[in-house]
Amino acid sequence: MSKILVGLKRVVDYNVRVRVKPDGTGVVTDGVKMSINPFDEIALEEALRIKEKGGATEVIVVSIGPADTQQQLRTGLAMGADRAILVQADSVVEPLAAAKVFLKLIEKESPQIVLLGKQGIDDDNNQTGQMLAALWDRPQATFASKVELDGGKAKVTREVDAGLETIEVDLPAVLTTDLRLNEPRYVKLPDIMKAKKKPLETVAIASLGVETAPQFKTTKYEPPAARSKGVMVKDVGELVAALKQKGLV
Protein backbone atom coordinates (compact mmCIF):
# COMPACT_ATOMS: atom_id res chain seq x y z
CA MET A 1 0.00 0.00 0.00
CA SER A 2 1.84 3.02 -1.14
CA LYS A 3 0.01 6.29 -1.11
CA ILE A 4 0.57 9.66 -2.69
CA LEU A 5 -0.85 12.75 -1.03
CA VAL A 6 -1.51 15.66 -3.39
CA GLY A 7 -2.31 19.21 -2.33
CA LEU A 8 -4.91 21.11 -4.35
CA LYS A 9 -5.33 24.80 -3.61
CA ARG A 10 -8.41 26.73 -4.69
CA VAL A 11 -7.24 29.94 -6.35
CA VAL A 12 -8.52 32.66 -8.66
CA ASP A 13 -8.33 31.20 -12.16
CA TYR A 14 -5.12 31.67 -14.12
CA ASN A 15 -6.89 33.70 -16.82
CA VAL A 16 -8.58 36.22 -14.53
CA ARG A 17 -7.03 39.65 -14.46
CA VAL A 18 -6.96 40.25 -10.72
CA ARG A 19 -7.92 43.72 -9.51
CA VAL A 20 -7.42 45.41 -6.18
CA LYS A 21 -10.61 46.56 -4.42
CA PRO A 22 -10.99 50.35 -4.44
CA ASP A 23 -10.81 50.47 -0.61
CA GLY A 24 -7.50 48.58 -0.58
CA THR A 25 -8.75 45.77 1.67
CA GLY A 26 -8.09 42.94 -0.77
CA VAL A 27 -8.60 41.86 -4.35
CA VAL A 28 -11.93 41.43 -6.09
CA THR A 29 -13.02 37.80 -5.78
CA ASP A 30 -16.82 38.14 -5.95
CA GLY A 31 -18.13 36.35 -9.02
CA VAL A 32 -14.59 35.52 -10.12
CA LYS A 33 -13.87 32.07 -11.53
CA MET A 34 -12.02 29.81 -9.08
CA SER A 35 -9.87 26.84 -10.14
CA ILE A 36 -7.28 24.39 -8.97
CA ASN A 37 -3.91 26.11 -8.70
CA PRO A 38 -2.20 25.17 -12.02
CA PHE A 39 0.94 23.83 -10.32
CA ASP A 40 -1.23 21.58 -8.15
CA GLU A 41 -2.99 20.22 -11.21
CA ILE A 42 0.46 19.23 -12.50
CA ALA A 43 1.17 17.61 -9.12
CA LEU A 44 -2.01 15.55 -9.37
CA GLU A 45 -1.26 14.54 -12.95
CA GLU A 46 2.18 13.33 -11.87
CA ALA A 47 0.69 11.35 -8.99
CA LEU A 48 -1.82 9.71 -11.34
CA ARG A 49 0.93 8.79 -13.81
CA ILE A 50 3.01 7.26 -11.01
CA LYS A 51 0.00 5.21 -9.90
CA GLU A 52 -0.77 4.13 -13.48
CA LYS A 53 2.80 2.89 -13.83
CA GLY A 54 2.40 0.84 -10.65
CA GLY A 55 4.39 3.17 -8.41
CA ALA A 56 1.51 3.80 -6.02
CA THR A 57 -1.78 2.23 -5.03
CA GLU A 58 -3.78 5.25 -3.95
CA VAL A 59 -3.86 8.96 -4.75
CA ILE A 60 -5.44 11.20 -2.13
CA VAL A 61 -6.18 14.84 -2.89
CA VAL A 62 -6.17 17.27 0.00
CA SER A 63 -7.30 20.85 0.18
CA ILE A 64 -7.44 23.45 2.93
CA GLY A 65 -10.12 26.07 2.48
CA PRO A 66 -13.78 27.01 2.69
CA ALA A 67 -16.64 24.58 1.96
CA ASP A 68 -16.70 25.63 -1.72
CA THR A 69 -13.28 24.05 -2.13
CA GLN A 70 -15.20 20.79 -2.60
CA GLN A 71 -15.57 21.86 -6.24
CA GLN A 72 -11.83 21.70 -6.81
CA LEU A 73 -11.55 18.40 -4.95
CA ARG A 74 -14.36 16.95 -7.11
CA THR A 75 -12.40 18.04 -10.17
CA GLY A 76 -9.37 16.27 -8.72
CA LEU A 77 -11.44 13.13 -8.19
CA ALA A 78 -12.71 13.40 -11.77
CA MET A 79 -9.11 13.60 -12.98
CA GLY A 80 -8.54 10.25 -11.27
CA ALA A 81 -7.76 10.69 -7.59
CA ASP A 82 -9.17 7.91 -5.41
CA ARG A 83 -10.45 10.00 -2.52
CA ALA A 84 -10.40 13.51 -1.15
CA ILE A 85 -9.96 15.24 2.18
CA LEU A 86 -11.16 18.78 2.74
CA VAL A 87 -9.66 20.47 5.75
CA GLN A 88 -12.25 23.15 6.19
CA ALA A 89 -10.90 26.55 7.12
CA ASP A 90 -12.78 29.78 6.75
CA SER A 91 -9.97 32.21 7.41
CA VAL A 92 -6.46 32.68 6.06
CA VAL A 93 -4.14 29.69 6.46
CA GLU A 94 -0.50 30.71 6.07
CA PRO A 95 2.01 28.28 4.53
CA LEU A 96 3.48 27.23 7.90
CA ALA A 97 0.01 26.38 9.20
CA ALA A 98 -0.78 24.55 5.94
CA ALA A 99 2.44 22.54 6.37
CA LYS A 100 1.37 21.62 9.91
CA VAL A 101 -2.03 20.48 8.63
CA PHE A 102 -0.35 18.31 5.99
CA LEU A 103 1.92 16.85 8.64
CA LYS A 104 -1.14 15.78 10.65
CA LEU A 105 -2.57 14.06 7.58
CA ILE A 106 0.79 12.42 6.88
CA GLU A 107 0.82 10.96 10.38
CA LYS A 108 -2.55 9.39 9.63
CA GLU A 109 -2.03 8.30 6.02
CA SER A 110 1.74 7.53 5.92
CA PRO A 111 2.25 8.42 2.24
CA GLN A 112 5.45 7.61 0.34
CA ILE A 113 5.26 10.81 -1.64
CA VAL A 114 3.64 14.19 -1.04
CA LEU A 115 3.23 16.15 -4.26
CA LEU A 116 2.49 19.87 -4.12
CA GLY A 117 2.63 22.72 -6.59
CA LYS A 118 5.73 24.87 -6.17
CA GLN A 119 3.64 27.96 -5.53
CA GLY A 120 0.07 29.16 -5.35
CA ILE A 121 -0.61 31.69 -8.08
CA ASP A 122 -2.57 33.80 -5.59
CA ASP A 123 -0.10 34.65 -2.82
CA ASP A 124 2.97 33.50 -4.84
CA ASN A 125 4.64 32.34 -1.61
CA ASN A 126 6.45 29.19 -2.75
CA GLN A 127 6.87 27.86 0.80
CA THR A 128 4.50 25.08 1.88
CA GLY A 129 6.38 22.09 0.41
CA GLN A 130 9.72 23.16 1.83
CA MET A 131 8.19 23.84 5.26
CA LEU A 132 6.41 20.51 5.29
CA ALA A 133 9.63 18.68 4.42
CA ALA A 134 11.38 20.46 7.31
CA LEU A 135 8.67 19.67 9.85
CA TRP A 136 8.45 16.07 8.63
CA ASP A 137 12.27 15.85 8.69
CA ARG A 138 12.24 14.37 5.19
CA PRO A 139 13.82 15.32 1.83
CA GLN A 140 12.43 17.97 -0.46
CA ALA A 141 12.77 18.10 -4.22
CA THR A 142 11.37 21.42 -5.33
CA PHE A 143 10.60 22.83 -8.81
CA ALA A 144 10.56 19.33 -10.34
CA SER A 145 10.53 18.95 -14.11
CA LYS A 146 11.18 15.19 -14.12
CA VAL A 147 10.56 12.50 -11.52
CA GLU A 148 11.97 8.96 -11.78
CA LEU A 149 11.16 6.47 -9.04
CA ASP A 150 13.53 3.66 -8.23
CA GLY A 151 12.45 1.54 -5.28
CA GLY A 152 12.77 3.59 -2.14
CA LYS A 153 14.36 6.51 -3.97
CA ALA A 154 13.38 9.24 -6.38
CA LYS A 155 15.63 10.93 -8.88
CA VAL A 156 14.29 14.40 -9.49
CA THR A 157 15.35 16.92 -12.09
CA ARG A 158 14.77 20.45 -10.87
CA GLU A 159 14.41 23.72 -12.76
CA VAL A 160 16.96 26.04 -11.18
CA ASP A 161 18.29 29.45 -12.24
CA ALA A 162 21.44 27.92 -13.68
CA GLY A 163 19.59 25.33 -15.75
CA LEU A 164 18.64 21.84 -14.63
CA GLU A 165 19.78 20.12 -11.47
CA THR A 166 19.26 16.48 -10.59
CA ILE A 167 19.12 15.26 -7.03
CA GLU A 168 18.35 11.88 -5.50
CA VAL A 169 16.14 11.65 -2.44
CA ASP A 170 15.13 8.79 -0.19
CA LEU A 171 11.39 8.24 0.16
CA PRO A 172 9.20 9.33 1.76
CA ALA A 173 9.75 12.82 0.44
CA VAL A 174 8.01 16.03 -0.55
CA LEU A 175 8.12 16.95 -4.24
CA THR A 176 6.98 20.30 -5.62
CA THR A 177 6.19 20.74 -9.29
CA ASP A 178 7.33 23.14 -11.95
CA LEU A 179 5.49 23.88 -15.17
CA ARG A 180 7.17 21.44 -17.48
CA LEU A 181 6.79 18.29 -15.41
CA ASN A 182 3.77 17.19 -17.44
CA GLU A 183 0.63 18.36 -19.16
CA PRO A 184 -2.44 17.62 -17.03
CA ARG A 185 -5.19 15.53 -18.62
CA TYR A 186 -8.62 16.86 -19.48
CA VAL A 187 -11.53 15.67 -17.41
CA LYS A 188 -14.13 13.67 -19.33
CA LEU A 189 -17.85 13.85 -18.59
CA PRO A 190 -18.24 10.21 -17.43
CA ASP A 191 -15.38 10.83 -15.00
CA ILE A 192 -17.21 13.79 -13.53
CA MET A 193 -20.22 11.52 -12.92
CA LYS A 194 -18.00 8.85 -11.39
CA ALA A 195 -16.26 11.41 -9.18
CA LYS A 196 -19.56 12.20 -7.45
CA LYS A 197 -19.49 8.75 -5.91
CA LYS A 198 -15.89 8.89 -4.70
CA PRO A 199 -15.30 9.55 -1.00
CA LEU A 200 -14.78 13.15 0.10
CA GLU A 201 -14.15 13.54 3.79
CA THR A 202 -14.44 16.92 5.52
CA VAL A 203 -12.36 17.68 8.59
CA ALA A 204 -12.61 20.92 10.57
CA ILE A 205 -9.19 22.52 10.80
CA ALA A 206 -9.72 23.19 14.52
CA SER A 207 -10.07 19.45 15.16
CA LEU A 208 -6.48 18.83 14.02
CA GLY A 209 -5.02 20.70 16.96
CA VAL A 210 -2.52 22.80 15.03
CA GLU A 211 -1.73 26.47 15.54
CA THR A 212 -3.30 28.31 12.60
CA ALA A 213 -3.39 31.93 13.78
CA PRO A 214 -1.68 34.04 11.09
CA GLN A 215 1.75 35.41 11.90
CA PHE A 216 1.67 38.16 9.29
CA LYS A 217 -0.83 40.97 8.99
CA THR A 218 -1.63 42.42 5.58
CA THR A 219 -2.52 46.05 6.17
CA LYS A 220 -2.96 47.30 2.62
CA TYR A 221 -3.52 46.20 -0.97
CA GLU A 222 -2.50 48.50 -3.79
CA PRO A 223 -2.45 48.17 -7.55
CA PRO A 224 1.07 48.10 -8.98
CA ALA A 225 2.57 51.38 -10.17
CA ALA A 226 1.48 51.97 -13.75
CA ARG A 227 4.15 52.42 -16.40
CA SER A 228 3.99 55.69 -18.27
CA LYS A 229 2.46 55.55 -21.73
CA GLY A 230 4.96 54.63 -24.41
CA VAL A 231 5.29 55.64 -28.03
CA MET A 232 4.59 53.64 -31.16
CA VAL A 233 7.16 53.86 -33.93
CA LYS A 234 6.37 52.94 -37.50
CA ASP A 235 9.62 51.40 -38.71
CA VAL A 236 13.08 50.21 -37.75
CA GLY A 237 14.60 53.62 -38.51
CA GLU A 238 12.34 55.31 -35.98
CA LEU A 239 12.97 52.51 -33.47
CA VAL A 240 16.73 52.97 -33.67
CA ALA A 241 16.31 56.75 -33.40
CA ALA A 242 14.16 56.33 -30.28
CA LEU A 243 16.72 53.97 -28.72
CA LYS A 244 19.52 56.42 -29.54
CA GLN A 245 17.57 59.26 -27.96
CA LYS A 246 17.35 57.26 -24.73
CA GLY A 247 21.07 56.51 -24.97
CA LEU A 248 20.39 52.79 -25.22
CA VAL A 249 22.34 52.10 -28.42
Binding site: P95, A99, N126, Q127, T128, A134, Q140, T142, F216
Partner: peptide
Protein backbone atom coordinates in the same frame (compact mmCIF):
# COMPACT_ATOMS: atom_id res chain seq x y z
CA UNK B 1 15.69 29.30 -6.90
CA UNK B 2 18.48 28.88 -4.31
CA UNK B 3 16.76 31.08 -1.74
CA UNK B 4 13.23 29.94 -2.53
CA UNK B 5 14.27 26.34 -1.96
CA UNK B 6 16.22 27.00 1.22
CA UNK B 7 14.60 29.80 3.23
CA UNK B 8 11.16 28.26 3.90
CA UNK B 9 12.92 25.16 5.21
CA UNK B 10 14.98 27.37 7.52
CA UNK B 11 11.85 29.20 8.70
CA UNK B 12 10.01 25.98 9.51
CA UNK B 13 13.01 24.67 11.46
CA UNK B 14 12.91 27.90 13.45
CA UNK B 15 9.16 27.48 13.95
CA UNK B 16 8.24 30.69 12.17
CA UNK B 17 6.58 31.72 8.92
CA UNK B 18 8.40 33.31 6.01
Amino acid sequence: TFGKDLMPRVAALLGVGQ
